[in-house]
Design a binder for these strands. Sequence first.
DNA 1: TTGCTCCTCACGTCACGTGAGGTGGC
DNA 2: TTGCTCCTCACGTCACGTGAGGTGGC
Lengths: 275, 275
Amino acid sequence: MTAVVTIGEFSRLTHLSVKALRHYHDIGLLAPAHVDPGTGYRRYGVDQVAQAQLVRRLRDLDLPLAEVVAVVSAPDEQTRNEVIAEHLRRMERELQRTQDVVASLRHLLEVGTVQVAVEHRTIGHLTALVLRAAAVARIDISAWCTESFSTLYRAAHAAGLPPTGPAGASYGPAFFERDLGEVLAYVPVPEAARLRCVGGAGSPAPEIVPGGRFAVGLHVGAFTEFDRTYAAVGAHVAEHDRALPLPIREIYLLGPPEAHDPGEFRTEVCWPILP
Amino acid sequence: MTAVVTIGEFSRLTHLSVKALRHYHDIGLLAPAHVDPGTGYRRYGVDQVAQAQLVRRLRDLDLPLAEVVAVVSAPDEQTRNEVIAEHLRRMERELQRTQDVVASLRHLLEVGTVQVAVEHRTIGHLTALVLRAAAVARIDISAWCTESFSTLYRAAHAAGLPPTGPAGASYGPAFFERDLGEVLAYVPVPEAARLRCVGGAGSPAPEIVPGGRFAVGLHVGAFTEFDRTYAAVGAHVAEHDRALPLPIREIYLLGPPEAHDPGEFRTEVCWPILP
DNA sequence: TTGCTCCTCACGTCACGTGAGGTGGC
DNA sequence: TTGCTCCTCACGTCACGTGAGGTGGC
């Protein structure tokens, strides 16, 4: 028989607040060993502290409660450790992003707004291997692009189609206005590809990517700084052209995996305008 | 005359979502240059993008909106940079804490619960220099203790009173149950000190710290691991003694600033019990 | 004229914290 | 018996996101 303690005692044992303990009971994580049916008084067994210690550390790492439940009720050690490891990787990525933003903020405060030369260009229709998604969240865009272009280049290579120009992607208005919207990634291939059967089932098939008239600015640097070139191109358009409510296109002249230093990345930002 | 754009265009220029822009307008941060009185349509000037870029970076760093307002409306560059710098320091501390918790989690998963030898001890009344606060938040406890003990040791030294034993602190029940409660820090000094006029105005004065009967366990290691020894001592008390609803005392046998490696810290955790 | 954009509520999210008002346990 | 602990609502926090329902602009 292990001893039982009141919620207040258990709080002192575990360094979890009474409010938190009641909440964990409400959601089914860490239910007390016994609840008095008349008074509702909670009694915790001292053998529950081990679980409480785990919960406390996971919450201190901001693991969402739903995942804490998953860890605590994991059928085996491996499942449990995988949830934790995935969260630690998420935190690593967050840290990297934070460092990028700090650098970007420093850059903004030092340099102020950037000057970007904006040119007008008519882009023709392109034959290309295409991947699209109806709703990509802005936070996921980097991972989505990495994966998509990897797939596209592999498919082009497997089909013996040499890319005929830089890859690109186009972003629907909702992607900016709602942080969630349609994205299309493409790798240009020879026109003749359309006549051939390319890839297997599930592989990207050749399509026509429609062209148009664009105001174009060259973005030099990391993707975290994209808004600065968008601001320059968009401001130019607002002052000199008529913007069209079509997707904005980015053309990746130089980027990963070829370039490793984000400072070297070169991307054209193409803003659709009235001809 | 700078051009004006709709909220949707401004969203594409700045990479701030339309919902976020409306929210920033509501709270008075980043108000549009013009609002149509009839329709409520917002029009932003393209010269507002610079401010928007700053806001976006600050929010990406999780600076609270109230402080973003403070930065954006700072009277001078120095005020602005100080708010930002303070936030960056906060983030540094957060990172350190996160790394500590990761280590602590790893330790828990590897070692499991710790064994702690618990002894019973009657502690007598102590003459000591004392600092107390009615409500210290758990997150602030480390900073509060560092500052308090620094003050106490300086006061003892200035008054020519050599500490007669290890320093300690006592934590009221609410400190654990509500993550916010009374804390008292003390440094023991010779009894004769009570007869002398010590320190100047505002300096801690000598007092009697009441003793009592305690269950005592030795905590070896970092303060982030405190809950493990609390669990051991508290469980022992629950099984063998009657706990009293009095403050729990910690006695700092070895800690900062003398020891630098948290692995070496030694602290006694004293749980008040019925004699 | 027809979509499309824009508008304003009202409510949801997440993990508790903050009281209010009341009762049981020692 | 007297505090003290414990209980359950109901609401607040923070920075927007998610619709609903409706109107203006090109």
